[in-house]
Simulated scan of single mutants.
Amino acid sequence: MRAEANLALDQREAAIAAFEAGMEQGGGIRLAEAYARFRLQEGQFDAAEGIYRRMVARDAGAYETLVLAGDLAAARGQTEAAIAAFRKVVEAYPDRPAPRVALANQYDIKGDVDAATKAIETARKDLGATPEIEAMRIQLLSEKGEWETIRTTLQAREAQLEPGSPLSLSYGEALLRLGHAEQARVIFQRASLALPGNPYSRLMLGIAQIETDNPGDAWETLRPLAMSPLAGPQAINAARQAADAVGAPEAAALAARLEPARLKAAQARIEDGARAMARQEWAKAVAIYQPMLSGAGDAEVLRRLALAHMHMGEVESAVGYADRAMAQAPDNPDCIYVAGLVRLEGGMQLEKARQLLRMAAKADPGNAAISRSLAKAMAAEG
């Protein structure tokens, strides 16, 4: 409790001292797990590994110890090791849904959708359709293109689906794929209002607008998404269709971006950038994203550059990129959040950081990362 209180007050060293004192005094597995997850959240995998080994020495068969082994492997991108670890948890604790879902998720990351589906269907049979099991099942059905099953499963719950939730988005895509474009358009319109920064909901809304013979609306929806250097082929192609329909001059440039060699090279750069961010290779991320900027810049590219520079300790550059991102996408909660976060982590303009984080929390009230940063900002001095 003392460690968690110090974390809330942004007193990191005091929190670590409290965790260590608890460990030295024979603290239990729950304390060790909290300490390890704190290290994991900071990206300090080696430190988390050290705590995990202490947990193994204390109680190798504890649920918390076994789960942490899987989470550590997953965080490091060691998919096979994570699968093996979560299988051990499922065997030892078959009544817990969380490791079942984690196992299916790792199979999915590996690209073995059939194994993921088998794992989640077994979980559903053994434990019932819990919310987390059902959400994973629907995700896998989406990946397999089993749209009629999704529609049948979720149709009776349509009114209860929260706009912008994963289940709602999957249901909307199922309707779109099955030819119910107008119903899908309404769902994705609501999702885009709830999640203004979500590229998937914007893409699906644009496609639905094309399918309902509203190319002007579709072009307005898709243009910002497709003109981004991070756009995928589906977004570029949908925008090209809309641009052709309304006679927009950008249609030719979009068609050129779909040429196989050019598209392959662009997608490889996008994947390299995402991989660098996931692996916390900040200098490499900057080297990849910096050349993507032109003109006023793309909001998502600017946001990622802000995060990379923040982690490199280059606070002024981070703030500059974050503010440019927010100027490009003033309603995007992620951009607002990063503009507050870089100030908070850099220890500058703390009142401005609080203001921005409050705005982000209001725009995306269910976001745990924003909530944690806002609590940290409110506790910080200055």
Rank of each mutant, 00 (worst) to 15 (best):
I120F: 01
R279E: 15
L254P: 00
G247Q: 05
A325M: 06
L140E: 08
G26T: 00
M312W: 01
Q155D: 14
Y337G: 10
A32Q: 08
I51M: 05
R303M: 09
S373W: 02
I83R: 05
A102W: 01
A361C: 02
D331V: 02
A361G: 01
E271R: 11
E162M: 11
A353Q: 06
G43T: 04
G77C: 10
R53H: 13
A129T: 04
D213H: 15
A5R: 09
A3V: 03
L225A: 05
M292H: 04
R157S: 14
K144N: 10
G179V: 07
D272F: 07
L195Q: 12
L193Y: 12
D71Y: 03
L175P: 07
I150S: 01
P99S: 08
L7Y: 04
L68I: 06
V338M: 12
R96V: 01
S371W: 03
Y337N: 13
G320R: 06
E345G: 12
N214V: 09
M359F: 01
A353S: 14
D95K: 08
Q328R: 14
D323T: 11
A73D: 08
R58D: 13
V90G: 02
A81M: 04
C335E: 13
G61C: 08
L374P: 00
A375G: 05
K362Q: 12
E316I: 07
Q106Y: 02
Q139S: 15
A339G: 11
Q355Y: 03
P99K: 08
R372H: 11
N332D: 15
L167P: 00
T212E: 10
A379R: 04
E250A: 13
Y107H: 12
G313E: 10
E173I: 11
E314Q: 15
M55W: 05
A287W: 02
L341P: 00
S317R: 13
A276Y: 04
S317M: 11
A62G: 06
M1F: 06
M359R: 15
A129F: 02
I336H: 03
R269S: 12
L307D: 13
A226N: 12
A75Q: 08
A115N: 10
A104P: 01
R157M: 11
L356G: 00
A266R: 06
M1A: 10
P229H: 14
A261G: 11
L66A: 04
A231H: 07
M227I: 14
A14E: 05
H311Y: 14
W147F: 12
A5F: 03
P229T: 11
P260H: 04
P215M: 03
A361P: 05
A261E: 15
A360L: 02
A276H: 03
A256K: 10
Y52H: 12
A252P: 03
A379W: 02
L230F: 08
Q209L: 13
A102E: 05
E80I: 06
Y107R: 03
E91P: 00
R177N: 13
R304W: 06
T117M: 14
G145D: 07
A14F: 00
G273P: 06
G382W: 07
R124K: 14
L9R: 09
T212V: 11
Y289S: 05
D46P: 11
E259C: 04
P166A: 07
A353I: 07
I120V: 09
V319I: 15
I133T: 14
R53D: 13
Q139D: 15
G340H: 03
V90N: 02
G26R: 01
A322L: 08
K352W: 00
M359H: 07
R262S: 06
G313F: 10
E250C: 01
E259Q: 13
